[in-house]
Simulated assay, not measured.
Amino acid sequence: MEEKNPIQVADRLFGVVEFLAERESSGLMEIATALELNKSTAHRILTSLQYMGYVRQTEEGKYVLTMKIVELSGKVMSRFDIIGLVRPHLKSLMELTGETVHFVKRDGNEAIYIDKVEARSNTIQMVSHIGSRIPLYCSGVGKAMAATFSPDEVRRMWKESDIKKLTPNTITDYLDFEDTLARIREEGYAIDDEENQLGVRCVAADLSAPGKSAEYALSISAPVSRMDDTRLLKLADYMIKTRNEILEAIRPIL
């Protein structure tokens, strides 16, 4: 059963913020209709957000988010000292492989992209961007982290996830998922074999202290045309080496 926010006004207020975050600008009626609010309620919410500095109106009368959201995001991200420690390694890995490198943090049953170093020669549009989320069950980074979970944690994550076949390669059978995690533990890295986005393969590894469930992971992503099985194994070697270097740098804060 879907949980409801116990404070309805907060649910509506942040619903407007999230709606505006997906668009350059929106009119009052568009917002009200999309969020199933009456016009006066939507107007009160927008007026409140304007007063607090989160929203402004354009000359055309449409509503847009201000940079205050970005300022808040920057303050939160500044607390993640781990990003500053990891980024040089991400850059080095991108230079070494010529492919896009991601760094994620676990948030429940999803991973959030908290840093990304884009390849200079990308020939395919990656769906990832900093702040976007990806399910654990169908991503390289997610499976790399899940391989460090206890059996109970894995079962709970699977049960609470909305398991969907996003591509023909997405694993949707729990026993197959368990087998995949066992292989990851043995080999030391995970693979996203076009399971989340067709045309893209990833090699990933967790960043965790011994005996702890991983909260972070990194990956190398590339078009399938540049990542056949032979190159995948080579990139996996680079991944494991980089993972070990990063762990040396961040171990005190894990």
Rank of each mutant, 00 (worst) to 15 (best):
M1V: 12
M1I: 10
P6V: 09
V9E: 06
A10D: 10
G15K: 08
G15S: 07
G15N: 08
V16R: 02
L20C: 08
E22I: 07
R23C: 00
S25Y: 09
G27N: 08
G27H: 08
A34C: 08
L35E: 02
S40E: 11
S40T: 11
T41P: 03
H43C: 09
L49R: 03
Y51Q: 11
M52T: 11
M52W: 09
E60N: 12
Y63W: 13
T66G: 05
M67A: 14
K68M: 13
K68Q: 13
K68E: 14
I69M: 14
G74V: 05
V76K: 06
S78N: 14
F80R: 13
D81L: 13
I82W: 00
V86K: 00
V86C: 06
R87W: 01
P88L: 10
P88F: 03
L90H: 00
K91E: 14
S92Y: 09
T100D: 05
T100R: 03
H102E: 08
K105I: 15
R106Q: 04
D107A: 15
G108F: 02
G108A: 11
I114W: 03
V117F: 03
N122P: 08
N122H: 12
T123L: 14
I124R: 08
M126C: 04
G131D: 03
S132Q: 10
S132A: 12
I134F: 02
P135N: 07
P135L: 04
S139I: 04
G140C: 01
V141R: 04
K143S: 03
M145D: 04
A146R: 00
T148E: 01
E153G: 15
R156S: 14
R156E: 15
D162T: 08
T167M: 01
P168F: 02
D173S: 00
Y174D: 00
E178C: 03
T180D: 14
E187K: 07
G188S: 04
Y189W: 12
D193R: 06
E194W: 07
E194R: 04
L198N: 13
A205Q: 01
L207F: 05
S208P: 05
A209T: 04
A209Y: 12
P210Y: 06
G211A: 11
Y216K: 01
S221Q: 06
A222D: 07
S225Q: 12
R226D: 03
A236T: 02
Y238G: 03
I240C: 11
E245L: 11
P252V: 08
I253E: 13
